[in-house]
Design a protein around this nucleic acid. Structure first.
Lengths: 236, 236
DNA sequence: GCCAAAGTTTGATCTAGCGCAAACTCTAGC
DNA sequence: GCTAGAGTTTGCGCTAGATCAAACTTTGGC
């Protein structure tokens, strides 16, 4: 796994150079300010399928994803996993503070090798006061999250399985798509089971859909890999 | 329809006496402060099935529901209505500002006769700065809203129709239940169609469920009315 | 008091997609 | 190189629940 060098070594000035200034929460800050923030941050590296925090854990930190992808998941009483959303690099997560909540309401599990920063929740309000870009960025993050949820509810309420699967794949393609010459690949390992947990169906139905679409040349998929060739042909 | 007298006439001091001090956003304020806030507010009265705002409207105000119940609704491209949540007295709504959004993302439609207050969105940040109770109350409102959405997604993803309907009715019972000697009545008109739009099913399935439950003495329901007699017996 | 509109009930199909089962394929670890 | 485990594919039967259709009931307006 190749991290951007600057992140892997956490050289702060470089880290800034790499990506951070593009990240909404840290717009409009001077290099010195950025370095201050980074000085307060803790770096996390997480291997695939390991969790950063579990639902119910006391929300001691909030996070910014630098590299890799996360699945945000909830588990029902009887053990069903439901994938609520995915987090892409540059997005904040674990932002229970924004909800005035003591605990995380969902589990954050690495979908690939992950690098993230975290800050103690106490700093949330300070960041917001010192930097209005942070404030509006976090608001927007909350709003985006909410929209994503709404969208999920609508899709689940009104679409049938095939469309829900198409929908989920399109969303992943947009969030985590990497262009290969012959289509857009979803840039982390993704099983049929994973997709079924995103769409409230069974891995069998997902498999059948993907097979059909493959036959029609709409996607190509192998073990833990999905490439979308003709997004517009998906029945979304 | 009987409004609390104080609200109907908007006598501010009384309005305070009635309910307002119990409402999270206005905790810990002096009477004078409350009167200031009320002076800035606009009063809305809305008849059943009329909308306060539509999805896509520019979010010029945020609202506090004083009396009655609201349905928050989204409509899909092909005209399906999906009821996302209900608002009970004392709750804020139309809080696009909390999401840094220019527009309302959903439609607010009165489920019964409604009385609400509104303030211009520009005042949001001022309220938050002046009154930390307002700040945390709005955060909690956002969090609650988010949890409700999550819950809805999970229910839709993992439960079958009968359970989803039971779930929806229990939630309404808790939010809008009025105890009659012989069960808890949902305190606004509610059709089978409404329930089906909350649960992503058809009015037919809802009707069949209610009929069955009625036969078992779990609910009593008539035209636009639902009374829950044995909540614990619902298959939730 | 009558009629139209709105809401509800119930029956009779029909099918999407779940559950189950079995075979198959890839991958990693030893 | 072999094996175990993880992931995938496919077939078959079954049922929850959608869809279609029709009758029925309540309500409000004139």
């Amino acid at each position: 796994m190749n991290y951007p060098r600057s992140v892997a070594t956490l050289e702060k000035a470089e880290l800034f150079g790499a990506d951070i200034d593009a990240l909404l929460p840290f717009e409009n800050l001077t290099d010195a300010q950025i370095n201050d923030l980074l000085g307060l941050a803790k770096v996390h590296r997480v291997a695939p399928n390991k969790t950063l925090f579990d639902e119910g854990d006391s929300a001691e930190n909030f996070f910014l994803l630098l590299d890799g992808f996360l699945r945000i998941v909830r588990t029902t009483q009887d053990g069903d996993q439901v994938v609520m959303l995915h987090i892409a690099p540059g997005q904040m997560f674990g932002i229970a503070t924004a909800y005035d909540s003591e605990c995380y309401t969902m589990t954050a599990r690495a979908a690939s090798d992950v690098v993230a920063l975290s800050w103690p929740s106490e700093l949330w309000d300070r960041f917001a006061e010192d930097n209005s870009a942070f404030k509006s960025a976090t608001r927007r993050a909350v709003g985006l999250r909410m929209c994503e949820m709404q969208d999920k509810v609508i899709t689940m309420a009104t679409r049938k399985v095939e469309q829900r699967i198409a929908h989920a794949i399109l969303r992943l393609m947009n969030q985590a798509g990497k262009d290969t010459g012959q289509g857009v690949e979803i840039d982390f390992p993704l099983t049929r089971q994973d997709i079924s947990e995103m769409t409230g169906t069974t891995l069998h139905s997902v498999s059948r859909c993907l097979s059909k679409w493959q036959k029609d040349g709409i996607v190509r998929s192998e073990r833990r890999r999905v490439v979308v060739c003709q997004p517009e042909a998906l029945p979304a």
